[in-house]
Design a protein around this nucleic acid. Structure first.
Lengths: 195, 195
DNA sequence: CAGTATACTTACTAACTAGTAAGTATGTCA
DNA sequence: TGACATACTTACTAGTTAGTAAGTATACTG
């Protein structure tokens, strides 16, 4: 009596591999054939678990949204201070980067946004909104507590921070693997209280 | 006796259209067929001007690099003050965005970077380097002149700014067309001298 | 033991992809 | 006038794509 079907684990393996391929080559850069070959099965096996590529994309984004919510609600995270939670948020992107070989979900999807299925566009927008909302509230609370310093609206600063992380992880692939860490250090310096 | 062949202008039209498609749908999201159909010619006509898709991509990036250099060297730009040049740089991205429908060149290419031809990867890296170098020097000079205020290395701040612009232009497509302007306003607020 | 669900494989299709070879219309120039 | 270059078209190929229909092996279940 499982919550989700995972008898042989193929479904999970497909998702893991698809996620890596998506973040390495973009939505139009990977095929069911690539996944099938890497897993040693036929492409029809992938269609059995995810009838269309759209289903697979939506499943990946929905899982990432669930993960983000779980992370946010986790006791270990909630017990950290403002800087601790911010560093935890940065570490998500550092993990995404994997040494400058991959980008984050939204960065991988946005560049081909124009011909993405509507459901994937919607899931992307929802994930983006959830990240912006969380970080905005976090920056707001941290500034009120004196942990952060910045001008303007928390929502604007949150957009800047997430945009910078997304852009930096992409730049890291252009022969500049240290770029993400550099930008994170700069973001932290810019948020430092004045004295 | 022309510098470049442009008798009927088809070559130029191809580049304009390819640039729009690239920035709307990514490198793997547009085909010679799309360009040919929109121009009312056959796909072989595109191959006549650009034998391979790689040639077309390289031509687009090389042109963008030339444009950036010309812009930088232009007298009108050189005569502006630090904030004037920075605003001019921001306006490039605002123009790129076209109301939240498209992203910048590097953003469009980086998400499928893994399976891009080597020559396109190199041109992308060169364009990125040139932008970072210019903005880094600009921020350095502006801070020394007292026009800007920021902590840390100019190169790091330049990476943050360009990353934020690249990320924000992508976020603008996720149902948040105002996101680029919001981030630009925040970047400017963060660079403001303290008193 | 029969029936059913799961997790596939085999074998296929229609559409699209970049790219090519050969032919043609038009203009330029000696 | 004739040779040549430019800018295409026609007609094609080989490979890849997402997706489907029908069959099969295995395990569970009443």
């Amino acid at each position: 009596m499982h919550a989700t079907k995972a008898a042989t684990g193929t479904r999970l393996k497909i998702m893991e591999l698809a996620q890596d391929l998506l973040r390495e080559r973009g939505y139009n850069g990977f095929s069911y054939g690539h996944i099938a070959e890497a897993l040693g099965v036929k492409n029809a096996a992938i269609h059995y678990h995810f009838p269309s590529k759209e289903d697979l994309g939506v499943a990946l984004l929905a899982r990432e949204r669930r993960r983000l919510q779980k992370w946010i609600e986790r006791k270990q995270i909630r017990e950290l201070d403002s800087w601790g939670r911010l560093n935890w948020f940065f570490s998500i992107y550092q993990h995404y980067s994997e040494g400058g070989t991959r980008v984050c979900f939204l960065g991988a999807l946005e560049s081909s946004f124009g011909d993405l299925p509507a459901s994937i566009q919607q899931e992307s927008a929802a994930l983006n909104r959830e990240m912006l909302d969380w970080l905005g509230a976090e920056l707001d609370a941290g500034r009120q507590a004196g942990a952060f310093h910045f001008a303007g609206e928390p929502a604007s600063k949150a957009a800047l921070v997430i945009g910078a992380l997304q852009g930096a992880i992409q730049m890291s692939r252009l022969g500049r693997p240290q770029q993400l860490d550099t930008v994170i250090a700069q973001l932290k310096a810019d948020l430092q209280p004045l004295n």
